[in-house]
C-alpha cells in the first residue's frame, strides 16, 4: 500500500496579529481517512494549506511522508487542457505510451469514457470534480487532500460522488484528509472526524467511526456519528 502519513505537534499559525490555529496535535497513519470539520472561518482551509505545503506554519512541527495532491472546491482543472490533458498532468514521469494507457484507464475508472477530448467548461460540475479526483489519484499520490470537494454540487450529485470516491479509494487506497463543512459527508466517509473550535482553532472533539465503507448516509452508525459531531459543535435541535 503506497500511502503517506502525517505528524503534527503543537502547530500554530497566524496571519500577522490574527491567530488562526493554536496548538494543533494530529497523527494520521497511512491509509487513514480523516475528516476535519468546523465552523466557517475556523481555519480549516489554513490547516489544509499547511498540510499541502502551500503555507509554512508559524510554529510547531509538521512532518509529511509521500507526495500530496489537493482536490479543490471547484475550478481546479486547467481549462485549456482536455480531460485527457488534465489527467496526464498527474503522470509527468511516464513515457508517452504508458501515459496513454494510464490516462485511458483512469478515464474508465471515473466513468468519463467518451469525454476524453472534452474541455472542462463543457462538463457538468460533478464530472469536473471526478476528473479532479482522477487527476489527483494518477501516478501514485500518497496523500489526498480534499478541500470541500463536493460543496459546489447539488445534494444528489454529492451523494453519488461520495460513493464514487469510496469505490476509487477501494481500488487505490490512499491516506485522505477531507476538509468540509458538511458534517454528514464527514461521518459518511471518514474513519475519524475532528472538530475544530472557533478561531484561534484547536481540535476540540475527535470521533472514531468503525463502520465499514461504503456506508449508507442513513445507516445508524452514520446518523449516530452525525448527531455526536453536531452536539460537539454546539448544535442543539
Amino acid at each position: 500500500m503506497s500511502t503517506g502519513s502525517i505528524r503534527i505537534k503543537g502547530l500554530s499559525h497566524s496571519y500577522g496579529a490574527t491567530a488562526v490555529l493554536k496548538d494543533i496535535h494530529l497523527d494520521v497513519s497511512p491509509g487513514e481517512f480523516v475528516a476535519i470539520v468546523g465552523p466557517s472561518g475556523s481555519g480549516k482551509s489554513t490547516l489544509l494549506s499547511l498540510l499541502s505545503g502551500y503555507l509554512k506554519p508559524t510554529s510547531g512541527v509538521l512532518e509529511r511522508t509521500g507526495t500530496t495532491r489537493t482536490v479543490h472546491q471547484a475550478d481546479g482543472l486547467y481549462p485549456w487542457l482536455t480531460v485527457e490533458g488534465n489527467l496526464a498532468l498527474g503522470l509527468p514521469k511516464l513515457d508517452a505510451a504508458s501515459k496513454r494507457r494510464a490516462v485511458s484507464d483512469m478515464v474508465g475508472r471515473i466513468g468519463l469514457a467518451g469525454f476524453e477530448k472534452s474541455f472542462p467548461h463543457a462538463l457538468s460540475g460533478g464530472m469536473r470534480q471526478r476528473v479532479e479526483i482522477g487527476r489527483a489519484l494518477c501516478g501514485g499520490t500518497d496523500v489526498l487532500m480534499l478541500d470541500e470537494p463536493f460543496s459546489a454540487l447539488d445534494y444528489l450529485t454529492r451523494l453519488k460522488m461520495r460513493g464514487e470516491l469510496c469505490r476509487l479509494l477501494e481500488d487505490q487506497p490512499r491516506t485522505v484528509i477531507l476538509v468540509t463543512h458538511d458534517i454528514e459527508e464527514a461521518t459518511q466517509l471518514a474513519d475519524r472526524v475532528l472538530v475544530l473550535s472557533e478561531r484561534p482553532a484547536s481540535i476540540v472533539y475527535e470521533l472514531k467511526i468503525d463502520v465499514p465503507r461504503p456506508r449508507d448516509v442513513t445507516a445508524s452508525g452514520v446518523v449516530d456519528a452525525t448527531k455526536a459531531v453536531l452536539k460537539a459543535m454546539g448544535y442543539e435541535p
Binding site: R69, T70, G76, Y78, W80, P92
Partner: peptide
C-alpha cells in the same frame, strides 16, 4: 491562485510553470 497551487502539486516549476500554466492561462 488555485492554478498555481495545482502547478505546485503537479511539479510544474520554473520554465514549465511559465509555459504550461501562466502562458495558457
Amino acid at each position: 491562485k488555485v492554478y498555481f497551487r495545482v502547478a505546485q502539486d503537479y511539479d510544474l516549476k520554473g520554465l514549465q510553470r511559465l509555459t504550461r500554466v501562466i502562458f495558457p492561462a
